[in-house]
Nucleic acid binder design. Structure first.
Lengths: 199, 199
DNA sequence: TTAATTTATTTAACACTGTTAAGTAAATGA
DNA sequence: TCATTTACTTAACAGTGTTAAATAAATTAA
């Protein structure tokens, strides 16, 4: 029976539609807006139908995560293919990584656990600037006798912060490293940036 | 009336108890476990009482966030006070930052939007390793003719990844920077690490 | 002390959430 | 045409944040 095939094809399509609908909802209203009933609305079914295609909400997120990794890998490969020197390839790949993160913001968030709902909160809270202020001052001192411009200090501060916050996030979310590797990355990064300041 | 003072003191105490209870619940069962009814249970009241002290759940998270920033700032100051040279101070401060993140994991999560519930998912998904594998290969090539050990490559990879993922996270959550600053941090970091590899 | 009023606290409810079981309509097979 | 499977929906459960109404307790006034 060819109708079996047609039905299977339709099922595969709905499975895909669920994913597309989910991503659409998230892009429009953020991750909090994503609910089974809204997905159902979007694909013009009722909520329980979704469970015929995904065992639960987590499975949908998992599939979006997989989709994200595949897309990112593809971007990295095309970036690499545009150069021959490894140094140029590496630079292009990390720029592609950067671009992916913002082009597919929602996917990147679910892939690496970047929560944005808290961002409204921490803003407008004066205490949130205390750590930066404290470290800022020391960077300025370290630069002496050269008096660094706002931009110069800013770049140094964010380089520090990025590498350390990045390493923390990766370890919290992904639990990937041995303590030794972490310490090594951390210490060499810090001393490297310090050297780049003191010259 | 002195009883007014006593009542005010009790109120301030309950306000504090709500925060303590919240943090306790999160530490025991993660952020998903935190609900108004569980907080109420912990402080031996019913849920609506909490709204006499905090306008909503978000206000509790906000207060925990503030608490976190104050604690972090204190840690940074004591770290700084233990040294005189700016370079040593800076190193000690960033190490204190690192230690704070893991000592007060839950606070750090709410301060900077580090989601951990997704970590169970991405694990055991082969696709999640594709980006790393792709970049790994290029790092190995960049090291040639020297054949890097597993550890050597790992440290370089995580240094790259940390600084870029960190910068991405910071911008998504806090969206603090001008595009120019971001590009500057990104490009100088990448070329800096590449130079540290090629010697 | 008793009555009136304010304060403290709880119960009940609303609109949501993810998820499951039972019921109903539609399509398929004999 | 009848029986059976498939497709889908309705109803329900336990949970969420939050608000309004009801009740208990404490305080003040007479």
């Amino acid at each position: 029976m060819a109708s079996k095939d047609r039905i299977l094809r339709l099922k595969e399509e709905t499975r895909c539609n669920i994913l597309d609908a989910s991503l659409k909802i998230v892009k429009e209203g953020g991750w909090d807006a994503l609910s089974m009933r809204k997905i159902a609305d979007e694909i013009e079914y009722t909520a329980p139908i979704i469970y015929e295609y995904y065992s639960n909400k987590g499975a949908i997120l998992l599939e979006l995560t997989r989709k994200g990794f595949l897309l990112l890998a593809k971007d990295l490969e095309t970036a690499k293919s545009k150069h021959r020197l490894p140094a140029k390839q590496l630079e292009a790949m990390w720029l592609a990584y950067w671009n992916f993160a913002f082009a597919e913001k929602e996917l990147y968030q679910v892939m690496y656990g970047v929560e944005t709902s808290c961002c409204e909160m921490a803003k407008k809270m004066p205490e949130s600037e205390m750590p930066m202020d404290l470290i800022w001052d020391v960077i300025v001192e370290l630069m002496l006798p050269h008096v660094g411009t706002e931009d110069e200090v800013c770049i140094k501060y964010y380089t520090f912060w990025s590498v350390i916050h990045g390493l923390i996030s990766i370890n919290m979310v992904n639990r990937g490293n041995t303590p030794e590797t972490n310490q090594e990355v951390l210490k060499t990064a810090i001393s490297g940036i310090i050297r780049s300041i003191t010259g």
